[in-house]
Amino acid sequence: MDYLDLPQRTSGERTYGLTSIIDLGTSIGELTHILEDYSSFIDIAKIGIGSAYVTPILQKKIDLYKQFGIKPYCGGTLFEKCYYQNKLPQYLRSLTDLGIEWVEVSNGTIDIPLHERLKLISEIKQDFHVIAEVGSKDSGDNLTVFEWVNEMKQLLDAGSEYVITEGRDSGTSGIYEDNGQIKSNLIHQLVEEVDYMKIIFEAPTPKQQMYFINLLGANVNVGNVKISEVLVLETQRCGLRSETFFVEEQGCKLPL
């Protein structure tokens, strides 16, 4: 069908308007069926938490994502585990062997000082594309707005191609209160200070996704999307859900 006037979506190998899904154990058979139908809606696939380390036939899963033009990478928890155990060289070599070209640098579980993360990014970017995450998985560990903005800017300047706002797969930390409420004042400040096309907002629930679509438009970057809900998200982006009925390509940038 092609007769409605809808927000113009980016397509092909997108640089913004990204949908990043979280894979927490999708079987190869199920994944194959999903990608056959919906791969055009997915840009990035995070093998969530540290599950890549124990995923059976991981190579087959990585190859399948790449076959459909989707960029796979491992969750930041695995990066942090390797950093904590001084195993980052082995970790990076294993990514190369798997054909993974993207690395997440995060500090959601352990405190890796900003200067250390910047140093790591400057080194890792020589061989990989880097995504850096800002924020903690501990809902009681709150950065100030200045710290959020400062970290994002420095991480991008160091060579990160995107910065991710921590939200967990539950949407209860980082840019969210522990009850899932969005920290709207923080979000508005971030998009005023940082190029939001370089921010991937973790938004695991439809309610959270709709907030960002209404605020920033159909082509906002959204992460931690459940793989079973990519069609719902694309429907929301196109203004085909009541809550996003009046969405525009660029969004309204007004308080919601």
Rank of each mutant, 00 (worst) to 15 (best):
S51F: 15
F146H: 09
N179A: 05
F201V: 04
G108P: 01
I112L: 04
D63W: 07
Y3W: 13
R241W: 10
S27K: 02
I175S: 07
E202N: 00
I42R: 03
Y53I: 13
T15L: 14
C74V: 15
Y38H: 14
L215F: 00
Y91C: 01
I100D: 10
F41W: 14
I200P: 02
A132K: 13
E30Q: 13
G180Q: 04
Q189E: 15
F246N: 11
V163F: 03
E104Q: 11
Q236W: 05
E192D: 08
V230N: 04
T96R: 09
F128K: 06
Q236R: 08
D195R: 08
D97I: 12
E133N: 02
L120S: 08
G76E: 09
R168A: 08
T165F: 02
K66P: 01
T96M: 08
L18P: 06
I112S: 09
S139W: 00
P113D: 10
G140V: 03
N221I: 05
D169S: 12
I200G: 02
G108H: 00
I62G: 05
S160E: 01
T244E: 02
A203W: 00
P89K: 05
F245P: 11
T26Q: 02
E234K: 00
G174E: 01
I199Q: 03
Y211N: 01
L35A: 04
Q59N: 06
N179Y: 06
K66G: 00
E104N: 10
K87F: 10
D43A: 07
